[in-house]
Structures are given as structure tokens and as C-alpha cells.
Simulated assay, not measured.
Amino acid sequence: MPESRFLTLADVAEVLNVELDTVRQLVASNELRAIQIGTGGAWRVEQTELQQFVNDQYERRRRESMFDQADFADIPEITGSFGS
């Protein structure tokens, strides 16, 4: 893995152990911040942005877990689970 400030989308896919298309979708949805070099050029992800994305995913999972364990998690109006 290169030790540069910026990673290619292929590098990011390797780090996250996902398909390249998954990384492209994350960039397209702006879930993973990236920059495009030049007009119609290659996308690059700064290592700090990748680390922030990973941290955000951990935080999201932590919050989901807390919500699932909350006293009100079985209320259909809150969870959206009407008519199981």
C-alpha cells in the first residue's frame, strides 16, 4: 500500500476489503469524500478522509446498537416496523 497522502479508489477498495464499485458508490453518494484531479480525471481519497469515514461507520454502528437496546425500540412508530 502506498504511503502517500492520497489513495486511488482501488487502494481504498483494498483497504476496506470491498469491491471497487462499492467505493465508487460511496464517492458518488458523498458518503466518502473524494476529489477529482482535473476535468474528468481520476478520483483520489485523502487518507484522513478514509480514516474519518471508518470512524463514522463505527459511530453509526454504535448509535444503531444503542437504539436497538433502548426501551422504546419496540415502538412501531419509531422503528418503522409496522405489521411484522
Rank of each mutant, 00 (worst) to 15 (best):
M1P: 04
P2I: 07
P2C: 05
P2G: 08
P2T: 07
E3S: 09
E3L: 09
E3W: 03
S4H: 08
S4D: 11
S4A: 09
S4N: 09
R5T: 10
F6L: 12
F6Y: 14
F6K: 03
T8V: 06
D11R: 04
V12E: 02
V12R: 01
A13I: 01
E14R: 10
E14Q: 09
E14S: 08
E14T: 09
V15I: 10
V15W: 01
V15P: 00
L16S: 01
N17L: 07
N17Y: 05
E19V: 02
L20N: 05
L20H: 10
L20T: 04
L20V: 06
D21L: 03
D21I: 03
D21P: 01
R24K: 13
Q25D: 12
Q25K: 14
V27G: 00
A28H: 07
S29K: 14
S29Q: 15
N30H: 15
E31H: 04
E31Y: 02
L32M: 05
L32R: 01
R33C: 01
R33L: 06
A34I: 00
A34W: 00
A34H: 02
A34V: 01
A34M: 03
A34L: 02
A34F: 01
A34Q: 02
I35R: 07
I35F: 08
I35A: 04
Q36M: 08
G40W: 05
G40E: 08
G41R: 10
G41T: 10
G41C: 10
A42R: 15
A42N: 15
W43M: 07
R44P: 06
R44L: 13
R44W: 07
E46S: 06
Q47T: 09
Q47D: 04
T48A: 12
T48G: 05
E49Q: 13
E49L: 04
E49W: 11
L50Y: 01
L50F: 02
L50G: 00
Q51V: 07
Q51Y: 08
Q52S: 12
F53Y: 15
V54P: 02
V54R: 08
V54E: 03
N55G: 04
D56I: 03
Q57I: 09
E59R: 14
E59V: 08
E59M: 12
R60S: 10
R62G: 06
R63D: 09
R63K: 15
E64P: 01
M66E: 14
M66L: 15
M66G: 08
F67N: 08
F67K: 08
F67I: 12
F67E: 10
D68Y: 07
D71C: 09
F72G: 10
D74V: 08
I75K: 13
I75W: 12
P76T: 12
E77R: 14
I78L: 15
T79D: 12
G80T: 11
G80W: 11
S81C: 11
F82T: 14
G83N: 14
G83S: 15
G83M: 13
